[in-house]
Design a protein around this nucleic acid. Structure first.
Lengths: 347, 347
DNA sequence: TTGAAAGCGCTAACAA
DNA sequence: TTGTTAGCGCTTTCAA
């Protein structure tokens, strides 16, 4: 009855207990850091040695069934192919693994309905918590989940209701540095290509842009902000083309992210405008290879790996202390990386 | 219907059975597609309705403990931050999720010892199988695992022993197209920056290079192949600098991957050589943004998403049919993308 | 400090 | 076709 085909493991707690000459319950207590104190020091040592000698690895399924904890955490990502999120996943996975947790990957492909289905299925799998990078500004799913006491940490994107802990970056300061930089170069007519309005990153950068422009006494009306359909190159291209064909006059573009900036640069080139001589461009995120473009992209660097790592720590903290309220909002500092796409304003 | 407060789940199989007026075992059989045939059609319907009404979601841990199957698959990746692997993960995750499997992410950070520890821990978690992108040419861990009958599929990289199923790309053909292309442009002295010798991708592209060169009657001796320490920009930079300072004369570089190519281009620039006027350069993989460089990189495009998806299918096939032998080697076609870094040979 | 016993929720052999 | 029974391997009362 012991050996069933495809057995995951062979050494069980009973085996360790027998080897150490104790009852399985005692072995369990000796091996569990939380209950180790209740066991005689000598016994602990004997059990530990036996476990070591036999190469015992606990069956996490059995433990999970008993404790209703799985030590598994789900990472909900809109698109793992996007290097932005890949860096975040990396940081989170490292911290989780080191803490003995297993990171499960959910790639929602930017589809909210797929997301709902997958999150439900992950709940059934007994996830101990979720790290969510897909938050929308209005997000019914996350509002529901916030009502349960399931540990969830948002990363990169925030919801309007702010009911869950959030790890992001100080984008307002990032945007402000961009506007300061452009203003110092003599730019006055600056356009903002905003990310979509259903993301906090889109909305907050746009708001920060208008605020920073006003602080410089520069025009910050509705006509200076174009909301793009998505955070993609295509959207940046289309929006910029519309701007240009609408006869808008400007000497600089502050894009909501690097991809929008890339699209904008293509549109400018097609319109016969040079970057940075005719129009300066700034991106956001500093994706890999942005320094390799010609001209290299001026952009705001965000510590994606750190964000992921911090989100993982916040989640582990929640899991370890379920009783306390968890709603901390953490913003990491960003850095303006000045490269070749910005220069003194054309007159 | 979906919302169960707090706990991961509350409706158990017993509840469904009671609601349907049958024994739990019968409910189990009725709900399991594999055993449904043994149950009266009417009973099946009653049970299904009860399950639906109660919002029953099976406890996967309990099932896994009993069946020693978890429907979880581990993806072993050297570095999820590398877009190359991100694409692969994406393809695999999609297929696995659609099949009701959960993809767990293991980022080994290119560290074999970390890999061994993590794989062991994943085995304890009862993974149903592994998709491994970290294979080394000589890989004791994988040889061990090949002896167990744990389902494992290799992707992107192969081991020398070829004992496990493998999904890769036809890199030999890719390299041949590169050499053909360069030869047609009049290049005769072509250097190959090979990837590290402990990877199949490094070795096989190097071998293919020498073979293709000979087929063209071009020099293919040891001095025309430089083995780089890693698949990184830095390694490509260093190797190219060494080549140049060693007085090697060449008009083209075929790099083992895009990063090596990027490093090579930096070294050329620093040495006062222009690309492509003085030296043509070709990469491998066609990472995102390689088309945005100036000049844009000529490279070989590999269908990473398809590779991941195919690997997932092969693994699911193995899991579904454990008895049959699984050692299929599948190579997907590649495509030469000619851009700006290659042109007629300088004389 | 240790042992005995129960049971987490499920499935599979066996019996009816 | 359905029910009975017995665990999967672990943790955790409770008792000693």
């Amino acid at each position: 009855v012991t050996a069933y085909p495809g057995a995951v493991q062979r050494i069980r707690l009973v085996d360790v207990a027998r080897e150490a000459g104790v009852h399985p319950a005692t072995a369990s207590r000796a091996l569990n850091p939380a209950t180790r104190g209740e066991v005689n020091r000598n016994t602990v040592r004997r059990v530990a040695q036996a476990a070591q000698r036999l190469g015992y690895v606990p069956n996490v399924l059995a433990r999970g069934l008993r404790t209703s904890r799985s030590s598994v955490v789900a990472l909900v990502i809109p698109d793992i192919g996007n290097t932005l999120f890949a860096g975040m996943v990396r940081g989170a996975a490292r911290v989780l693994t080191e803490a003995g947790f297993t990171p499960v990957l959910i790639d929602t492909n930017n589809d909210p309905s797929a997301e709902r289905a997958q999150v439900a299925s992950m709940r059934a799998r007994g996830m101990d918590g979720f790290i969510v990078a897909t938050a929308r500004w209005e997000d019914p799913l996350l509002d529901e989940l916030a009502d349960s006491d399931l540990p969830i940490v948002l990363v990169n994107r925030q919801t309007q209701t702010r009911r869950l802990p959030y790890i992001g970056t100080d984008d307002q300061h990032g945007v402000q540095m961009c506007v300061d930089h452009l203003a110092a170069l003599g730019h006055r007519r600056i356009m903002h290509l905003a990310g979509p309005g259903d993301t906090s990153t889109g909305r907050e950068r746009a708001a920060a842009f208008q605020q920073a422009m006003r602080a410089h006494g520069l025009p910050a009306g509705a006509s200076s902000v174009t909301v793009c359909a998505a955070f993609t190159e295509e959207a940046g291209f289309e929006s910029t083309r519309t701007l240009l064909s609408g006869g808008q006059r400007f000497t600089a573009i502050l894009a909501g992210n690097d991809l929008l900036a890339l699209g904008a640069m293509t549109a400018l080139r097609q319109a016969g405008l040079r970057c940075p001589e005719d129009v300066s461009v700034i991106g956001f995120n500093d994706l890999p290879f942005m320094d390799k473009l010609t001209p290299a992209l001026t952009t705001v660097r965000r510590p994606m790996g750190d964000m992921g790592a911090l989100a993982a720590r916040a989640l582990l903290d929640w899991i370890a202390n379920p009783a306390t309220r968890h709603t901390t909002q953490t913003l990491l500092p960003v850095e303006l990386i000045v490269r070749g796409t910005t220069q003194t304003a054309a007159r």
